[in-house]
């Protein structure tokens, strides 16, 4: 894997030019990030403001994506929804990644008994069907963004930990780690300075490809009424509200569905492009 050093971004930019799908992925992800960060300033209307007289307007120049049954501007709601999607997607995956990295490094480099114990834990969590686990927790704790994020973290952490552990095990026996051990370095130093930078790269790629599935999961659970409660403009809620009036206003469902598709495509293309450019060997495993 090429080290991340000076000239890295220039190199990536050069490579993206020869990789239109990767460039498209980058554009889509940047668009999502832009919408998420600046949602309150770029929405043309207040996404919560009711305007019943203008309800069920088809897409037009004022309301680009039309309006819903309460007359709210769907374009504004979609942009506001990107903020929820981004927040849920990125923060849960980042948390799961951080915990998974630590546990994986400990399992891979620590004593054998701890490795066995952690593996048992990972596998037990892994063996629960995702949706059933999600529904159970939501039923017990009640539907909220926090519950949803908690479920995703619980499900994703073992996956990252296992990947980290495998990578750690293969690096652990390499000569450079032995060389550092022979200098009398502490385990903490070996883990932080020599193992972490070498396992984190592939993991970031996997994680970036997981973000859209979390976004979809959030939309799905919200659609089922177990995710983010109304009136928050999550894409799942837009879909659900649109579904009930699809006979009258087809555009609502379309407006809620398209950003989901674009987000998934964006992160997937970008992740694949990063994988191919950073480490061609990964193509076989991921």
């Amino acid at each position: 894997m090429a080290p991340v050093g000076p000239g890295f971004f220039a190199r990536m930019a050069r490579r993206l030019r020869g990789d239109p799908l990767g460039a498209l992925g980058l554009v889509l992800v940047l668009l999502l990030v832009f919408c998420g960060l600046f949602a309150p300033w770029i929405t043309p209307f207040d996404p919560f403001k009711l305007n019943v007289p203008d309800k069920f307007q088809a897409p037009n120049l004022v309301h680009l994506f039309g309006t819903d049954n309460l007359g709210r501007d769907i374009f504004s709601r979609v942009i506001a929804g990107s903020r929820i999607a981004l927040w849920v997607g990125v923060s849960t995956i980042a948390t799961a990644l951080a915990i998974g990295l630590v546990l994986g490094l400990v399992a891979g480099y620590g004593p054998r008994w701890l490795d066995n114990l952690l593996l048992l834990l990972f596998d037990s969590i892994y063996s629960f069907p995702t949706v059933i686990l999600g529904l159970t927790v939501v039923t017990l704790l009640g539907a909220s963004v926090a519950t949803l994020m908690f479920v995703v973290i619980v499900i994703q952490t073992p996956a990252y930990a296992r990947l980290t552990r495998t990578a750690t095990l293969s690096i652990k026996s390499s000569e450079y780690i032995q060389a550092i051990e022979s200098l009398g370095a502490s385990k903490l130093r070996i883990i932080l300075i020599h193992l972490l930078p070498n396992v984190v790269g592939p993991l970031l790629i996997v994680a970036s490809m997981d973000i859209p599935s979390v976004v979809s999961l959030e939309a799905g659970l919200t659609y089922l009424g177990m995710g983010i409660p109304p009136p928050a403009p999550s894409w799942g809620r837009i879909l659900q509200e649109g579904y009930s009036v699809i006979q009258v206003a087809w555009w609502i469902v379309v407006a809620g569905g398209i950003p989901l598709i674009l987000t998934t495509l964006g992160f997937t293309f970008l992740g694949e492009s990063l994988r191919d450019n950073l480490d061609p060997k990964l193509r076989r495993i991921l």
């Binding site: 000569e175 060389a179 200098l183």
Partner: peptide
Amino acid sequence: FQDPVSSLSPRRTVEALVGEPFVIH
């Protein structure tokens, strides 16, 4: 160690690698 290149941690500069024994001790 045997392999001249792979006995050096791949993401560290020569300066960090040569200075490392001092830091460790």
